[in-house]
Write a protein that binds this DNA or RNA. Structure first.
Lengths: 407, 407
DNA sequence: CGTTTATGCTCGTGGCGAAAACATAAAGGA
DNA sequence: TCCTTTATGTTTTCGCCACGAGCATAAACG
C-alpha cells in the first residue's frame, strides 16, 4: 500500500527499506498499532524492530507513547507522529476559494487557513505559493512536500484546465516556483480516490473505483492502493466518455459525454436554470432541496441524473471490474435521494457476469476532506521512501535535531 | 516489469531476490544481453553477478554461451535458456481448435501440437488436460506451469464464458484438475496485451492499452508491464460499454454495447449475412476480400465499423490516458483497410487535451501469437519469483541435476 | 510475593553485496 | 612477435544486516 521504490540490492538498502516499511506501516494504520503489533505485522525479529524504532525515534520521525495495557504482560508502546516530525502541506483549490491544511505521520490533518478568490489564476497561484513559502519559513526542514488539489485535468503534472472557471492550459509551474519547494498539483477526483483507498471504504481492495461528481464527473481507478493516472496524468476522465448514449456536444470537443448528463451543469440545464459557476452551487442546493420537498420538476431532474449516473457506473464496472465503487460530491446526494434509480440504471448497464454479486456502490467515507487527505498521501508517498528517509536521517545524525538541513 | 513479490526482509531473501532479478532480466531481454551488460543494467558489482550466474547455472536455470566479441577486451558470455531448464506450457483455445506450445527462459516459443475440436467443453477440456499431463510426464520437473487462453471472460480464474460457442459459466477447474499441475486459464485479449507489453509495441510504456477485436471486443489496460485484470479477473470487457451511442440490446444483458458495433458478429449482421461461429470466420474473410475489391456494401460495413472502432478507442483513451494503443485480430484489418476512418472516429471522440499529441493506435507486433506468448509470460511471472526459484534450487542442490524433484 | 505473560534489549552468528586487487582473454600497435 | 590497452571474470577482504536465543523488564494474577 504505497508508491513504487527501486529494487533492494544491498544490505544497506535493506536497512533503509525496512525503515521505510516500518514508517509506512505506522502511517497507514493511523499510528494506532503498538510496536509489538507492528513487529508482528511486518514479520520482523524483535531485535530488528528495536533498532529501527530507535533510529526513527532518534531522527525525530516518530515518538513512542505508552499504550493502554489491554491485558497482562509488559506494556507496549505506540509509535506515532513526532512533535518535530515531517509535515505535509496540502491545498484544496475550489472555484471560489481554497483551504490549506497540514498533515503528519499517521494521517492527522489540520485545516489552518481558508481564503476566497476571484477566479484570476495569475493572482490565485502566486498567493498560494506565498502561503506555502510562509509555512516553509515556519516549518523549516519539517515541511517535506506540498500538493495542490484542483477540479480539472492536470496534463503532465503541470498544464491545468478547469473548464467551469475558463482556465485553459494554465502553466502553473512558474507561479508555484516561488514556494521554495516542489509543489505537486493533481486532480481532485484522483486525490479523493487515493484518500478513499488509503483511509476510506476502498481500503485494502485490490481494484477499486472512485467517482467524484461535481460540475462534471471525474474519477480514478485504484490498483493495490495506487492511483492509475495514465501516461500524462489525465486518466480517469470518465466524464468524457460516451457512456449513456447521449449525442450532445461537449466542451471537450467530443460528443455524448457522460459529464454532459451527470453533474451540476447538466442538472441545472435540465432544470432550466442558467447559472454560471458562482451561482451554480447555490442553485444546485435549491434544486436538491426542492426535490426533497417533492417538486415534480426537481424530482424528474434528479431521477434522470441518477439513472445516467447508474448506467455510467455500470459501464465502468464492466470495463474495470472493481471490488467496490465509491462516490463523492453530488454523487452522494444522488445516492441518498434516488438510490433505487441509481441501482436500476447500474444493473441495466452491467454485464450479466456481474449481476449475481455486483460491486457495491457506496458513498465515500472521506467526503469533502478527500482531496486534502489524498494530497497528504501523495506527499507522504514521496517522502516515505528509503532514499528520502535516509536523507532525513543524515541531516539529523549530525547532532542537529531541530535546525535546518544544511550540508 | 513483472509480477509482485513480498517485500524483502532478510539477507537471505536479498540473495533470492537478486537471483530472481537476474533471471528476470535474462528472460525479459530475450537472452540477448551479455553478462557484463546484465551486471551493468542491474547495478550489481561484478563479484555479485559472478556468484548469481554461477548459482543459476549450477541449478540448470541458464547456460552461458560465448558472445561474439564486438570489440577489444576479454570476451563476455550470454546467459540463455538451459537445455534442461524450466519450460512453460501454453495452450490457445479457439472456437474450432487449439494450439499447444512450450516456451523457455528468454521467451522462445515452439508450437508442438494443433488439434481441432467440436465445441463440446466436456470433451475439449479433458483432452487438453490429458495433453498437459502427457507433457508433464515427458518434461518432469522442468514443466513449471501451464496456462490456457480462451476467447471469453474468466470469472475468478475459473468460471468461463464464451458467448459465440454458447459456453456459459463453465466450471473448468474440475476438468483441468487431471493435468497434474495447476493450470491457469485466462482471457485471450488479456494475454495478448501482456505479450504486447513485454515483447511488443507496448514494451516499456507506463500505461498502455491493447484491444483485441474478434467476434466481439476485449482488451486490457497495462500498467508498468502488469495487466490490470480487476477484482474477479474480468476487467477489460470494453466490448460491453456503451461507447458509441448505440441502443441495440446485447447478449450480455446491457444495451448499446460497443461489441455490438465492432467485431465479426456486427460486421456480418450489417453485411446481411447470417453466420454461426463455424462459418463466421470464412464469411468475414469474404467480406474483407470484397471490401478490398471495392464492393460498395462491404466497404460501407468496413467504414461504419472502423468509425465505431475509432470512437470507442477515443473514449477509452480519455478514460485511461495510455501512452499507446495496440490492436489485434480484426482491428488490424480495419486499421489497414480504413485507417483514415478509424483515425477520424478516434479524433472525434478524444478530449481536446489529447488532440495535440494523441496516443498512437498501432497494429500489435505479436499478432496471432499474442495469446500464446502472453500465456508463457503468465507462467514465468509465477515462476521467476524468489520463492519458486529457491524451491527449484533446493531440488537441484542435492546433486540431482536431471531427475525428479523429490525431497 | 512468586508466577505468568508479554514485551524490549543485548549480543553472538551466519549471510550478503561492495570494492579492490588480481587473473584472463582478446585486439592494436610498433 | 611482444607489449600495451581494454574489457571482463574471479577471489578476497570488509562492513553491514537481520535473526534468534537468552536475559531483563513491567505489568496482572492468585
Amino acid at each position: 500500500m504505497s508508491g513504487m521504490s527501486p529494487p533492494v540490492r544491498t544490505s544497506e538498502e535493506l536497512r533503509a527499506h525496512n525503515r521505510a516499511r516500518l514508517l509506512r506501516a505506522v502511517h497507514d494504520t493511523g499510528a494506532a498499532l503498538t510496536r509489538a503489533q507492528l513487529t508482528d505485522r511486518l514479520g520482523m525479529a524483535r531485535g530488528t524492530a528495536s533498532v529501527l524504532v530507535a533510529e526513527l525515534s532518534d531522527a525525530g520521525l516518530i515518538t513512542e507513547s505508552p499504550a493502554e495495557p489491554p491485558s497482562r504482560g509488559r506494556p507496549s508502546h505506540v509509535p506515532g507522529p513526532h512533535a518535530e516530525g515531517p509535515v505535509a502541506l496540502t491545498i484544496h483549490l475550489r472555484e471560489d476559494g481554497w483551504q490549506l491544511a497540514t498533515g503528519t505521520i499517521g494521517g492527522e490533518l489540520s485545516v489552518l487557513e481558508e481564503e476566497t478568490h476571484q477566479g484570476e489564476p495569475s493572482r490565485v497561484f502566486p498567493e498560494i505559493a506565498d502561503r506555502i513559502a510562509a509555512h516553509r519559513e515556519r516549518l523549516g526542514h519539517r515541511l517535506v512536500g506540498a500538493a495542490v488539489s484542483v477540479a480539472g485535468p492536470v496534463v503532465n503534472g503541470n498544464l491545468l484546465h478547469v473548464t467551469h472557471l475558463r482556465w485553459e492550459e494554465l502553466d502553473v509551474s512558474g507561479w508555484l516556483g516561488t514556494a521554495g519547494i516542489p509543489v505537486r498539483i493533481a486532480n481532485d477526483a484522483t486525490l479523493a480516490a487515493l484518500a478513499e483507498a488509503r483511509r476510506g471504504k476502498l481500503r485494502g481492495l485490490s481494484t477499486a473505483l472512485h467517482i467524484h461528481v461535481d460540475f462534471g464527473v471525474g474519477g480514478c481507478l485504484m490498483d493495490e492502493g495506487r492511483p492509475l493516472t495514465g501516461a500524462r496524468g489525465i486518466a480517469g476522465e470518465y466524464g468524457h466518455m460516451r457512456l449513456t448514449g447521449s449525442t450532445r456536444p461537449c466542451d471537450c470537443g467530443a460528443e455524448g459525454c457522460w459529464g454532459g448528463e451527470v453533474g451540476a451543469v447538466p442538472m441545472l440545464r435540465r432544470y432550466g436554470v442558467a447559472a454560471d459557476y458562482r451561482q451554480g452551487r447555490a442553485a444546485l442546493a435549491r434544486l436538491l432541496r426542492n426535490a426533497a420537498d417533492g417538486e415534480p420538476e426537481a424530482v424528474a431532474v434528479l431521477d434522470a441524473t441518477a439513472d445516467s449516473l447508474g448506467r455510467g457506473i455500470g459501464g465502468l464496472v464492466n470495463a474495470h471490474d472493481p471490488a467496490a465503487v465509491t462516490l463523492s460530491g453530488i454523487g452522494v446526494d444522488l445516492l441518498h435521494r434516488a438510490r433505487d434509480t441509481v441501482t436500476a440504471g447500474y444493473r441495466a448497464a452491467l454485464m450479466r457476469y456481474h449481476l449475481d454479486d455486483p460491486p457495491p456502490v457506496l458513498p465515500a467515507d472521506l467526503g469533502v476532506r478527500g482531496p486534502l487527505v489524498g494530497a497528504m498521501e501523495l506527499v507522504f508517498d514521496e517522502f516515505i521512501t528509503p532514499e528520502r528517509l535516509t536523507a532525513w536521517h543524515q541531516h539529523h545524525a549530525a547532532g542537529d535535531p531541530t535546525g535546518d538541513p544544511r550540508q
